[in-house]
Every structure is written in structure tokens, then in C-alpha cells.
Amino acid sequence: MSQSNSKSLLQELFSDHAPGLLNFLTRKYQNYDLAEDVTQTAFARLSNEKTLSNIKNLRGYLYRMAENLVVDHIRHEKVKERYLESQKHHKQHIESNAPEEAVEAQRQLGKLQESLERLPENCRTAFIYHRIHGLSYNDIAVKMDVSVSSVEKYMLHALRSCREAVRK
């Protein structure tokens, strides 16, 4: 099918089915704005279909696509609601414990910094490359010109030192 034939088929499909689809979605979901957005999106997606002529029941295909778009929209809205709710609870938790937690976090951070400063240079370097810069042990080994097992030992020493500092 040529592009002009596909375009005229799409125009015909739009004029024949857009009002009915809009009414169907509005009645079913009780939301005109959603129905209008979904109708437009469905036709936009349909216009991107390369093989419109291969679809036997274009009306059925269009309606199924629109219903799937609504389901996707509802699913997305639920995820958004859960995220916003979790952020609200998280913010409330932080605000309720903020002063005490901030003081404790500062104290812990100070201990970690002192612990890192006392580490041998190679352990500190390996730790910073891995935890701060996100390098893998292999990349660190190449950068430091040591074996991977040496990097593992450096990291083990650094992590033990940090753990002990936080426990004190």
C-alpha cells in the first residue's frame, strides 16, 4: 500500500471512528479529557503502523489499542500515586527526626572521614575509586597497577576500618 493510500485510509478511519471511539471511552471511563487524549494517541499510533492493510478489523484493532492505552494510563497513575504517597511519608519521617538524625549523621560522617584518613594510601585510593567513582575492581587494579586480589584485600581492609569506626 502506498503512503497516500495509507494516509487516505487513516483519514477515512478517523472520520468514521473517532467520534464513536471518543463516546465509547467517555462513557466507559467517565473522563472526557482522558478519552480525548487516548483517542488522539490511538490514531497517532495507528498512523505509525506500517501495515495497516494487513489488519483485518481496523475498528476492532483501534478500539483494543485505545482500551490498552487507558489501562496503561491508569496503571501509570497508580504508580505515580504510590510514589507520591511514599515521598510524603518519607518527608514526614525525615522532618520528624531531622535534628537528631542530622547530628548523628554528622558524627558518623566524621568518624568515617577519620577512619579513611588513617588508612594506608593504597587502601584509601582503592576505596575512593570503588565507592566514590564507581570503578570495578578490575579497573582499579589496572589504574593502580596491582592485581585484582590486591584490590580485594585493600577494599576488605578499608571496609573493616569503616565498620569499626562507625561502631565506636
Rank of each mutant, 00 (worst) to 15 (best):
S150Y: 06
N68Q: 10
S147E: 13
N68F: 02
N122K: 11
Q87M: 14
L52N: 07
L22R: 11
E77N: 04
V146R: 01
D37H: 10
A66C: 08
Q11I: 03
K28S: 08
R45K: 15
R75G: 01
V166M: 13
Y32C: 05
N54W: 04
Q92L: 15
K168C: 07
S53P: 01
K111M: 10
T39G: 09
N54V: 07
A35S: 15
R59C: 04
S8K: 11
D33Y: 08
Y32F: 12
R131W: 09
L135D: 09
N138Y: 05
Q87W: 03
S53L: 06
R59W: 08
L119R: 04
R82L: 13
V151L: 05
R163Q: 15
I74H: 10
N122A: 11
L10G: 05
L84S: 02
E121Q: 13
G60K: 06
A126I: 01
K168P: 04
R118E: 14
E114C: 02
L34Y: 06
R75L: 02
S6N: 10
R64Q: 14
S149W: 07
E164S: 10
Y83V: 06
A158M: 12
R131H: 15
R167Y: 08
N97W: 03
S2P: 05
V142Q: 11
H133A: 13
Y83A: 09
L135W: 13
Q3I: 07
P99G: 08
Q92H: 10
E100I: 11
E95K: 14
H76I: 01
R27V: 09
L22S: 10
R64D: 07
C123N: 05
L109E: 07
A141T: 10
N138H: 10
K168G: 11
S136V: 08
E77T: 08
V151K: 01
